[in-house]
Every structure is written in structure tokens, then in C-alpha cells.
């Protein structure tokens, strides 16, 4: 090991200890040193992850692996307790329900819940080199039911309802040009803005779809509409990018607030 590595490690450990003791001494509550330890640990893990911005380092790697491991274990435990114990066992047998201290849900057709158990076991057969093919049955079931369930719902919500949302009147409350110009204003619910929004929706949807129409060469008026389509797509992606920046900065604000408020206590 290099000397600088050891020194860095020693300094970080010392800072951790100082922070822990200081937090423990100034924290109120029933177990100040435990709380102090947890806050300090959280703060140091935050800093360890952030240190990646400088460059890749062992502290970042440690924090990342810790996160991956903990979340995998957490997801597994939760999956067991909420799916198997929470949803399956109460419908299987009163005896096992008693054992897990969950209330048995009686029903006439509870025996059908043995089918998901069998499918679940078959799914695990993926781990076996010879029985791997058995996992295709439950997989086929999952893919089939999900496709069937989603097909109708997507068709309804993302197709029919979206078509009906696109059918908007382009002339709202139209009583001639005189009326239009005498009542001209730029409020969000004004006639001008509403008409413009509806026009954007109509043209946006039509040209966007034309861009994704592959059966015809994009030339002539069709090509021009497709050009408008790609512009609209780009504006959408720009908006989406902007929103993403906002989202990421919110997360950074959350972390920095944690460091300043909960750990360093320099803001209230």
C-alpha cells in the first residue's frame, strides 16, 4: 500500500470519529451516540459517492457496493414478506398463516393459489442447468398475460383516449374577426392562447406521426410535415432535458440540505 493511501485513510477515519463524538455529545435523545453514528455514517457515505466527481476511488467503490448489496438484500426480504407472506400465504392455509401471524383469507377457490406456487418453483428452475427449459412456461404465462392485459388498456388509454384528446376545435368561441380582435388578450384561458394551444396539439400530433410513418418517402409536402414533426420532437426532448436537469438538481439540493442541516447543523 502506498503511503498517501494510508494517510488518506487515517485522516478520513479520524474525521469520522471526531464527527461521531461531536454529534454524540450535542445530540439530544435517548441514544445520542447511536443517532450520531447513523447521521455521521450517512454523511460520509454521501461524501464518498460524491467523491466520484473528482475521480474514481476506493471510497466511492465501497459506498456503491454497499448500496447495491443492501438494496438487493432489502428487496429480497421485502419481496418475501410482502409478496409471499403478504399475498400468498394468507390464501393458502390457515395453519401456515397462523405460523407467520397473518390472518387467513378464506375463499372457496383458494386451491387455485397452488398454481402460482408451482409456476414460481418452475421459474426458479432457471438456476438448474438441466431443467432450465421449464422456466419458459411461467415466463410464457407472464409475457402472455401482461401483453393481453396491457394491450387493451394501452389501446384504450394511449390510443382511443389520445385520439379523442387530439380532436379539438381550432376555432373556439368564434364570433367573427371583429369580436376576436376586440377581445384579444394573452391570458392562459383567453381565446387566442386556447386556439393557439389547440393548433399546436393538432399540428404536433399529426406531424409527429408523419415523421414516424415509414411506408412513404419523406418528400414534397409529406417531407415538410415530417420536418415540422422532428422539430416538435426536438422541442419535446429539450423540455424533457430541462425537466431532468431540474430533477437532478433537486436531488443534489436534498443531499446538500442533509449535509448542512442534519450533519453540520449550520442551517435550521
Amino acid at each position: 500500500m502506498k503511503k498517501t493511501t494510508i494517510i488518506t485513510f487515517a485522516v478520513i477515519s479520524a474525521l469520522f470519529l471526531v464527527s461521531w463524538i461531536a454529534k454524540g455529545m450535542f445530540t439530544e435523545g435517548s441514544s445520542p451516540f447511536l443517532d450520531g453514528f447513523l447521521v455521521t455514517l450517512a454523511a460520509f457515505l454521501t461524501l464518498a459517492i460524491m467523491s466520484f466527481l473528482y475521480k474514481d476511488n476506493p471510497y466511492y467503490k465501497f459506498a456503491e457496493h454497499l448500496f447495491v448489496g443492501v438494496s438487493a438484500a432489502y428487496a429480497m426480504c421485502l419481496g418475501f414478506w410482502s409478496t409471499i407472506v403478504g399475498n400468498l400465504i394468507p390464501r393458502l392455509s390457515s395453519g401456515i398463516s397462523e405460523f407467520f401471524k397473518v390472518s387467513y383469507i378464506e375463499g372457496d377457490y383458494n386451491f387455485i393459489y397452488f398454481i402460482p406456487i408451482i409456476f414460481g418453483i418452475l421459474l426458479l428452475m432457471r438456476l438448474s442447468p438441466r431443467g432450465g427449459w421449464l422456466s419458459r412456461w411461467p415466463l410464457a404465462f407472464i409475457v402472455g398475460t401482461t401483453a393481453g392485459l396491457n394491450f387493451v388498456r394501452y389501446l384504450r388509454s394511449d390510443f382511443i383516449n389520445q385520439v379523442s384528446s387530439t380532436i379539438v376545435p381550432l376555432m373556439i368561441d368564434w364570433q367573427g374577426f371583429g369580436h376576436f380582435f376586440s377581445n384579444l388578450n394573452f391570458s392562459a384561458t383567453g381565446q387566442l392562447v386556447m386556439m393557439f394551444s389547440n393548433l399546436v396539439i393538432f399540428i404536433g400530433v399529426t406531424c409527429g406521426i408523419i415523421y414516424f410513418y415509414f411506408s412513404k418517402e419523406h418528400t414534397g409536402w409529406f417531407g415538410r410535415a415530417s420536418k415540422i414533426g422532428i422539430w416538435i420532437l426536438m422541442i419535446t426532448f429539450g423540455a424533457s432535458f430541462g425537466y431532468t436537469v431540474m430533477g437532478r438538481i433537486s436531488l443534489l439540493v436534498g443531499r446538500i440540505t442533509f449535509l448542512f442541516r442534519d450533519w453540520l447543523e449550520i442551517i435550521s
Partner: peptide, 19 residues
């Protein structure tokens, strides 16, 4: 592609009729 053409057609007819 045909479904998309249907959407465009329905939207255009709809927008005209919505008036």
C-alpha cells in the same frame, strides 16, 4: 403505419367536425 394513418385521418376529420 396503417394505424398511424388511421389516427391522422380520424384527427383531421375530428378537428373539422368539432367546429
Amino acid at each position: 403505419d396503417y394505424a398511424k394513418a388511421a389516427i391522422i385521418l380520424l384527427a383531421v376529420i375530428g378537428v373539422v367536425l368539432a367546429q
